[in-house]
Each structure stands twice: as C-alpha cells, then as structure tokens.
Design a protein around this nucleic acid. Structure first.
Lengths: 222, 222
DNA sequence: TTAAAATACAGGGTTTTTCCTGTTGACCAG
DNA sequence: CTGGTCAACAGGAAAAACCCTGTATTTTAA
C-alpha cells in the first residue's frame, strides 16, 4: 500500500485546521512517498499559496468553505492549472454536489467518514490511474443519469405517439411550417398540437416546450 | 466467491449459441447456487420464453442481436418486469452505448473479454448490492458528464460573460422583452446579442440556440 | 495614439409564432 | 341513432421573433 517512487506532492484546502492536521498525520501513516506543499483555509488562500514553480500533483479539497468554496476553487484550478488533480474530501454527499464536482473534473470524491486506508488507496489510484471513484460515487452517477419517471409529474404515457413526434421535431432548429411537412399535416393542425402541448406541459412558448421536453427526458438530444 | 443461498435464477439473451453455452459453463464453474431458466436468441425470443410465474432474477443481455436488440429488450423489460435486473455482456464498448444502457437502468455492463471471476463477482454483487459497475463503466460515466471542450468546436471562452448570460436567459420560457428587462438592456441590444449568437452557434432560430446551448453544455438546465 | 473590436442602441420591415373561434368527419358508447 | 370526444383543419389578427442597415461610445490591441 505504499505510494509510487517519485514523491507525490500534495496540498490541502479545508477551513478546519484540526481536520487538515488529522489528514496529514493519516497520510503520513499510509505513505512515506509524499510531500505536503501547503495548506490553505479556502480557495482564495489557496490561490495565494500556490507556487507556479512547484505545483502539487494532487489537491485534497473541501467543498464548504468561507470566502471561496470548493466549486469556485476547482473552477479556478481547471482554468489556471488543469494538470493538478483534485480529490474532494467532504462531509456533504448530496447527489447534486457530487455530480457538479465530477462535471468540474475532480478525480475522486471521498466522504470524510471513510477508512484511512481508503484515503491511501485513493491517493495511489489518482497518482497512477488518474482517478478513484468509489461505489458510492458511481451509484450517484448512475442514479443521476436515470430519469426517475415518478420524479417527473408527467409521464411519457400522457402524450400520444403523434404528440411525442411533434415534440421531438419542435426541439429542432426548424419552423412549424417544416414540421408540418415532415409530419404530413397542415400547419393549422400543428397549431393544434402546439396548443395542447402548451397546456399539458404548462409551457408559454415553443422555447418553454423545448426546455421542459429536454429536462424531463421526453426528448433526447442527438 | 460462492453465490448467496437462495439460488439465483438466471437467463441469457444472446444470438451466439456458442457464446451462451460458454457463459453457462463459466457460471457453473464460479457458482453452484444458481439456475438457468432459459436462453434466448434475441429480445423477441426472450419475450416468448419468459414465464410470468417464474421470472429470472438476473438476465445476461447482449446488445447487438437481430430482430429485437438489447436496447429494445431492456426497454420492454423495464416496462413489463422492472424487478428483473439486467447485466449487459457485450463486445461493444462505445461510450454512447454504455451510457444509453445505464440510462435504461441496467445493473451492470461487462465487456466480453473480462476474466471469468469478474463475471462471478458481478453476479454476486448484483444479487446482493443490486449493481456492479467496473472502473471501465465509471470512467465512461464520468467522461460522458464532463463536457469535452475540445469535442465541441466552440469553447465557452468564445462567448463573453454577457453573451453567456443572454444565452442562459434565452433558455427560459420568457420573451426577449423580458430578457432585456432582466439584463437592463434595450430590446434592440438583445436583438444584437441574438444575431451574434445565431452566427457564433450557427443557429437559425431561438429554438436552435437553445438546443445547441444545452447540447454543448454552455447552458445547464436547473 | 490610433484603428479595430466590442457594446449599446434605433428605425422599419418581413416572417413566424401565438391565440381565438369555429367546422368537418371519424369513432365510440348509451 | 345520437350525443360526445378527438384529430385534422381554417380564417383572421395580434404578438413575438427575425433581419438589415446604421450610429455612438467604450475598450482593447497594435
């Protein structure tokens, strides 16, 4: 369980001093092949302490911090030092938070209540493979992809086949005139479909129709 | 590595007889606690052979099959027997295929060139935890979430802060008049923003703007 | 410092979208 | 057989979206 030969350069960004110190002592226990370059209280502090001539390989990042939180800090890193890998270590495990962080490109997301050896595994995996995602994170990712039919008040079955076809075409960069041609219907009939869908989806305009259709998964963009 | 006590009821859907037989002998090797209820050549065949009084716990499903492929078969199962867990075992590992299958709710996705013992682990995990996702699948999921700046010809940096704001508001169910008010600009200025974005995003209408913005990740729906 | 972008705005016209009311024929149930 | 619902369609008109040309100011880069 020892880390690879070139010492891994680490940095910690977390507003709780005690937690940072605890982390460091844990890392010391699971590995000798590492160096802590700096500790920071928040994203802003990190910006000040980061040394362009000696960048860390991995930054352990908290999410909730004053002044400049984890999201802003990761975004800044992505912009200015994209080669630095971020491992989030946070107490929050809300689906939205995890997904958002993954979207921002973090290489791992650990809950603060994990076993110390998992931390070692994560650091090792990120240093070698480039990422470390637990079953917990994967589960959230999978769940976030699946469109919960129950979560959406309107089920796809509330729409007729023809209405779904109209909705699909409404999400393309074409006029109703062209939609009527592709559906072999009069533009006036299209007028009717639009009106019933405005009512069913509670939209006020075609743009509303489009965003609701996409958000609820009724229409999938190609 | 033995499977849990109540024997797991399995079924296989794959158009290659030889592969099915091979799978079965492999499963026999890694476990004694299971029963193969039936084998099917494709989704349609599966529909015929499935016995409502004795449903399988897990179905091993191929993707590419004649008559009724894996996608259609999984969709049918989701509709008619949502309690059956599907483990995809396929040769294709295209990102889109994997993501699509996960969206359909499959509990695992294995490539056909895996080690036999991984198959045993997968079956065990699906029977117990309900899912089994390899690093391979997780990697694809993570990647599919991250908007590849290079994949998209237009980077977010090609748009000014004000233009991104306009785009964001354009994806709401409001008129340009209302957008102009929210941005504290004249409707005529909004006219200008629309025109430059039509040009930059190669859209022909506001709907085109919306779908491109969402597809490229320039705008995230709330 | 000077020219080129970028930003904000206007006039005025065309096209598309949206909304309202109303008709016709098909199909289904009492 | 008849009333009720539904899909398809129309006329007509107001609102919104779209398009083109042109101006003033500010910001940026050579």
């Amino acid at each position: 369980m020892s880390l690879p030969h070139p010492p891994i350069k680490l940095a910690l960004v977390d507003d709780h001093t005690l937690f940072r110190k605890g982390m460091i002592s844990l890392i010391d226990m699971v590995s000798t092949q590492h160096a802590i370059l700096f500790e920071a209280d928040n994203g802003f502090d990190m910006q000040q302490k980061i040394d362009k001539a000696n960048l860390p390989d991995i930054i352990l990042m908290d999410v909730n911090m004053p002044t400049m939180d984890g999201f802003a800090a990761v975004q800044w890193l992505k912009q200015h030092h994209p080669e630095i890998k971020v491992l989030v270590v946070s107490m929050v495990d809300r689906e939205e938070t995890v997904v958002q962080m993954i979207k921002l490109g973090v290489k791992g997301y650990l809950n603060k209540d994990i076993e110390p050896k998992v931390l070692g595994q994560a650091l090792e995996a990120i240093a070698n493979k480039g990422f470390y995602y637990t079953d917990f994170v994967t589960g959230i990712l999978v769940h976030s992809l699946q469109w919960d039919e129950t979560k959406s008040q309107l089920s796809a079955s509330d729409l007729s086949e023809r209405e779904k076809e109209f909705l699909r075409l409404s999400c393309k960069d074409i006029t109703y005139q062209e939609i009527s041609e592709q559906m072999n219907l009069s533009p006036k009939t299209i007028d009717g479909y639009r009106n019933v869908l405005f009512d069913k989806l509670k939209a006020k305009s075609r743009v509303g129709l489009v965003v609701i259709a996409i958000r609820t998964g009724l229409v999938v963009l190609d």
